[in-house]
Nucleic acid binder design. Structure first.
Lengths: 251, 251
DNA sequence: CGAAAAAGCTAATCCATGTTAAATATAATC
DNA sequence: GATTATATTTAACATGGATTAGCTTTTTCG
């Protein structure tokens, strides 16, 4: 994907959160982006460091995680092309978690300070970015529910449903089929399970005829049943553009 | 607590997130607040409904939660006097979770639409509110780690440490002693455990001499050990005011 | 105050998921 | 294309926390 093409994707994404004027879009295009490729497993931000750069994820996948005192990892979210990395840390003094690449990623990085100024000077952009972070939060909350109150088969089913919809929204899934470049160990770290048990559950979902897998591709065969087993409701993804987000429709 | 006194507390809180001018503060004071008391267990917002009102929590405690398909509840956060309820839902089209009172609460409610206009017209206020929601998010992330990767004694120890620090910041705890108006069932819903097991663990923490309890009061006797067992690090609470949050220090 | 409801506590048993270990398959690297 | 590293799969066994049930204490409310 070419750099400006990726940028347009991000612009479209932001516009669904609130209307932007031509000046807003120009200001985004005028940001001092650095286009580069980050290797798999490389870090954009590390816990404990002050956040210096923010990135638009143009291609590839990334994830947020923390490591506990006894060395166990918990992944808190997975990010897909078109999304911001990492607004969550960028407006705070110290990063409280790691942001790491899942695959090789093309990104457009920009200094956090420039982004802060942008949000300050262009309130509509600030608003749209704020809403982006609020949707991140909605997903965090659902993940708390997932690891806190669902059993293993529900957790994994839920994760697979979430990925299906988000990838579809990103134009990377069709007919409930997608590539997700995660190992079973990483799925375990998303769901608070062990890799061994993730394997058992994935196999079971296959035996039940709910999904089919080949390498890293997933095909959801019985969407309705998977959704039901995963206790999956799309509401928290806030996929519908607009809503009473802008002032005009808010009264 | 008198109404304006509560409002000042919220103003002070916002100011720690970024400097506000006199005009900003006046705009907040001029908001069409309605002061009222909400009964224990009453709802401020319900999942699935469009958010209509936002509130400043002046006295009392509240919490966010969702209920899974088979009726289990997961609490996603607990809110203390001085905090906003509920910025998380207020800038989205539909509430994706419930916000409910834990105790009788004095609140200052304001229409979501008025708050949206405020954020639009006073960018510094918008910025400060945004940062409030980002800190909410940081706590959500830590809770994912807590329920996903810590065992029961760590989870509960972690929760007790978090409450101690947040209550101290709110001026409601001293000498590692505080009142937390939660039943063991609600603690279970915070930690993804059962009430029976929460009871076992609390008793065990008492036997180990780490805490003392009487009714709803908690006293942390050995802070260092509790913090260690709970794998608790304060970073995610972002308690230090300032940081490179404001533009001046951002270059 | 006295009754009823809610919350706290305890014990016995069970099971979903973890642990450990190894074999196989796939992907990366020279 | 052989070699090595990484990921997947399976099996046997262990266990942390769930479940169930009953009892006790505290709180609520008439």
């Amino acid at each position: 994907m070419s750099a400006p093409e990726g940028l347009d994707r991000v612009l479209r994404r932001l516009e669904t959160r609130g209307p932007l004027g031509a000046d807003d879009k120009d200001a985004i295009r005028a940001l001092p982006f650095t286009y580069r490729t980050l290797e798999p497993a490389s870090y954009l931000v590390r816990e404990g460091e002050p956040p210096e750069i923010c990135a638009l994820l143009l291609t590839g996948f990334a994830y947020r995680h923390k490591v506990t005192g006894n060395g166990e990892r918990q992944i808190m979210s997975v990010h897909m092309p078109g999304e911001f990395l990492d607004l969550q840390n960028s407006f705070l003094g110290v990063a409280d978690h790691n942001v790491q690449m899942l695959t090789r990623c093309d990104v457009a990085t920009v200094a956090v300070a420039a982004l802060r100024r942008l949000a300050e000077e262009y309130p509509k952009i600030g608003r749209a970015m704020w809403i982006e972070t609020l949707i991140d939060s909605a997903i965090f909350r659902e993940w708390i529910v997932n690891v806190g109150r669902r059993d293993s088969i529900s957790r994994i089913s839920h994760l697979l449903c979430e990925f299906a919809l988000r990838l579809e929204a990103a134009g990377l899934a069709r007919d409930n089929r997608y590539e997700i470049p995660m190992t079973q160990e990483q799925i375990a770290d998303c769901t608070g399970l062990t890799p061994v048990h993730v394997n058992r559950v994935l196999k079971e979902l296959g035996r039940m005829g709910l999904i089919e897998r080949a390498k890293r591709s997933v095909s959801i065969v019985q969407w309705d049943r998977l959704q039901q087993i995963g206790d999956f409701n799309t509401r928290y993804l806030h996929l519908e553009a607009g809503g009473p987000t802008n002032l005009a429709s808010a009264r």
